[in-house]
């Protein structure tokens, strides 16, 4: 069996659908603007931001980071298994990825409930306005990502993916990794940096 020979095997290739990558770039641009606006607003209200940041639960934020990273790992494994020609074996990996993503949602709901219970809202302060709007914007992306993972799981379960048909699973995976990537900046920026 030939191993990694020929131009086709070494050619550079963008995984998934080209359209998702333009969508990802638009999302990265939007999140990037939000992050930079947050950082420069903080620069004008350092004491307020430092004081109110202490009310956030960093452990919840760290647990959510671990959940998203683990979910991303499971998605990578699903893509690898599908690429190896075992679409149905990708389904359990995607189910595990979904479970981690759902775990993120549960932790975030508890976090929001605690803040709302303490009377905190968008109008409480500039810091909480940013905290709630930025994390909720990301939260909505996690929800959409979970819908996509569920669709990928269904596709894998029915044997849709394989070496000749990777577009769907690679497209969904790219979106999910983007959701993860954005959180990797959001967590230190809002929960830790002071």
């Amino acid at each position: 069996m030939a191993r990694n020979s020929g131009p086709e095997t070494t050619a550079r290739r963008l995984p998934g659908d080209l359209a998702i990558w333009f969508f990802i770039l638009a999302e990265l641009l939007a999140f990037g603007v939000f992050f930079v606006v947050y950082a420069f607003t903080r620069a004008n209200h350092v004491e307020l931001f430092n004081a109110e940041q202490l009310t956030l639960d960093r452990t919840s934020g760290a647990i959510n980071t671990v959940l998203l990273l683990t979910s991303s790992f499971f998605v990578v494994r699903a893509v690898q298994v599908a690429e190896a020609g075992f679409s149905r074996r990708a389904a359990p990996w995607l189910a595990a990825a979904f479970a981690c993503g759902a775990g993120f949602v549960v932790v975030k709901i508890f976090e929001y409930a605690e803040k709302i219970g303490a009377g905190i809202s968008l109008s409480s302060s500039t810091f909480y306005m940013f905290y709630l709007s930025l994390t909720f914007f990301h939260f909505m992306h996690v929800i959409l990502g979970l819908v996509i993972i569920a669709a990928m799981w269904n596709g894998a379960r029915t044997g849709r993916y394989g070496p000749g048909n990777m577009n769907g699973i690679e497209t969904g995976a790219a979106y999910w990794h983007m959701v993860d990537l954005v959180w990797l900046i959001l967590f230190p920026l809002i929960y830790v940096m002071r």
Partner: peptide
């Protein structure tokens, strides 16, 4: 899965690499 996979260059690396990165 690794042993029986087609031997084409993968865009997605190996299971071990993915685990180490995790």
């Amino acid at each position: 899965s690794s042993l029986s996979s087609p031997r084409h260059a993968s865009s997605h690396g190996t299971p071990n690499r993915a685990a180490i990165i995790w």
